[in-house]
Amino acid sequence: MSFHDLDIGFAGNPLDRLSQAREDSRLLAGLAAAPDARAVAFVQSMPVLRLAGETLSSLHPLAAARAFGAIREEVLLGRDGNGPAFALLLPDDAAQAEESTDAGAFVDQRRLILPAFPALQIRDLRPLANKAALPRAEIALLAQAKAILHFHAHHPFCPRCGAPTHSAQGGWRRDCPACGARHFPRADPVAIMNVVDGDFCLLGRQKIFPEGMYSCLAGFVEGGETFEEAVRREVMEEAGIRVGAVRYVASQPWPFPASIMVGCEAQALSREIAIDRAELEDCRWFGRAEVLAMFEGRHQQGFFTPNPIAIAHTLLQHWLDEGRR
């Protein structure tokens, strides 16, 4: 089974990123001046949304988005058939917390607003994706914007000499005028793996997971390590299971803040679990029928799998589908 980009959460970005044009200042200026230029705006790592008819949209006319506040950074995301698209970073203090007046509310109703634009909404990207509150292509565009704006927000100074840096190459590089260093955004690779043994797979849960949720094991890839080596190391460290063959299944951009999830299926060589309690609250083997029940919300103990937006869901779906052949 193969997966199209649109089957993976935060993937399916429709933009031509125009990477070959980022050094062309005249072209960049022309794109920004185009009447169909659009922008997404972020404040405190969250997108600013507007109502478009009865639905939400994160895309604003560029001129309108520039009026939301003092723009810290402006980045060219690319262009599609609807025109060029940019990402704008607002200062944190552009947004203010607003308390709900609903006395009967039993959950925290605090939300952020732009005081000068009360009709706009500020939402976290993850629940927007989980609830499919925006089109998939727009969610993917926001993932790109969130990752690159995080880079700018957290790299105002040169790590080599400490001098202030400035944006360059359409927002895809930061240059240090003091020592000449050039700094590029990074994507942190994460190996996430469905460890299988015949009709069983290994799932674990962390304390921060919602009660009852089990997911695939995962961990960051370290320097000087292949993805296959990272899979074997992480599974041994967290669950004490030896792993043999590892195969690639799919990947996913994960903008929290700027990771790339590389999904694999790994063959277990042992069965006895030894949990690292510092990493996992629980870890156990699940049969195909049990995982299917978790997918369908009918597990006897109320266990369930991650939301379809997560690549762990894709890996488990892939394994279930292969078992039906």
Rank of each mutant, 00 (worst) to 15 (best):
D5L: 11
F10A: 02
G12V: 12
G12Y: 10
N13Y: 00
P14N: 00
D16F: 01
A21T: 10
S25P: 01
R26M: 10
L28F: 03
D36N: 15
A37S: 13
A39D: 02
V48K: 02
R50N: 09
H60R: 04
A67K: 15
F68D: 11
I71H: 01
I71M: 06
E73Q: 11
E73F: 06
G81A: 07
L88Q: 03
D93K: 07
D93T: 07
A95Y: 04
A95M: 09
S100M: 02
A103T: 13
L114Y: 08
F117Y: 11
L125T: 03
P127R: 08
N130E: 15
A132L: 15
A133Q: 09
A137F: 04
A140L: 03
K146I: 00
I148A: 09
A153Y: 05
P159Q: 01
A163F: 06
Q169V: 07
G180D: 01
F184H: 09
N194D: 10
Q206G: 11
I208H: 15
E211D: 08
M213D: 00
G219D: 15
F220L: 13
V221M: 15
E238N: 08
G240T: 04
S251F: 08
P257E: 08
R271E: 14
I273L: 08
A278E: 14
E281C: 05
R288H: 07
L292M: 01
Q300L: 11
Q301A: 15
T305P: 02
P308L: 05
T314A: 12
Q317M: 11
W319T: 13
